[in-house]
Amino acid sequence: MTSEPDAPLFADRPEWEDVVPLPQYENVDPLAPIFYTDEYKDATNYFRGIVKTGEMSPRVLELTENIIRQNPAHYSAWQYRYKTLMALKAPLDVELRLMDELAVRYLKTYQVWHHRRLLVTETREPGPELEFITKSLQEDMKNYHTWSYRQWLLAYFNDDALWSDELNFADQMLESDIRNNSAWHHRFFVVFQSGVRTGDENREEVVRRELAFVKNYISLAPNNASAWNYLRGILDHSATPYSQLLLFVTPYSVPRSPDADLVDVIDLENPPPSMGAQLPCVAAIEFLADIHENEGGDDIMKATELWRSLADEHDTIRKKSREYRIRDALQKVQV
């Protein structure tokens, strides 16, 4: 294995004898010269050597893997590796299995993901990829590259089988972390942003389903910005007035009433804040203020009172933004 730490330098391997290694500099005295480890210098010297001759052979795969393992951000090595794979018509499933390992090891490197994208564009077998992504998200449930790769995969291949379990997947991710914004975003992407899936043709029904879903999650953990953003997203997308949520939002916007737990008729459409949730909830007050502002007229004053309570008491770090809203709303009233 070339990746073994005690692997010999390429300069010491007889099978590389015919390549002329090219050192980094010739007559350049740069501002920021780089002094690499011997292993890295050796491998990249040979890399420049084969790039110069244009060689694309199996040993180039060995060499580029060696460099990538030392420095996964070396984009020229990735690029040349891809070209070589194509030239050799190398088995891409083998490459993808190698990538399974490297992707998890170098989760935050752009190149790892882009290389994968190129490979899958060739193999046109997106199915196993979803499984791989699900596994790799276990390492880092909010990894931007991983999520964005999943969204690309779904949209690019866009076949029904690929989408069929996606809502379940988003559910599972939210179940393991109710505050994972990436999972909330993904749910919106699946439900509203990617065309209409089989079974979802009745859009009003979908909106009802999603409202019930997000209300339930807000009730479990009211101080969850992602869930409130999702709620606003559904309403904006379906042009539903915020005022329709007045009944639901109000109990979240006030301190817990002492007799709250005595209510024995549960309104299933409007689940109450869970026991022990911290109230009032900033996002609920904000939401209520938006409802009042939209109503206009005398309600504007109600909105400004709510913003005032946020500015002075419940969310002081965003005082300036609420004072701006107050001034802005009052100006509109005067006009």
Binding site: Y144, W147, S148, W152, A155, H185, F189, F192, Y230, H237
Partner: peptide, 16 residues
């Protein structure tokens, strides 16, 4: 552009 007003790195990607 996403429903939260933000932008992602490619179409469909989360706001960042």
């Amino acid at each position: 552009r996403n429903f939260d007003g933000g932008f992602g790195n490619t179409i469909g990607a989360e706001s960042h």
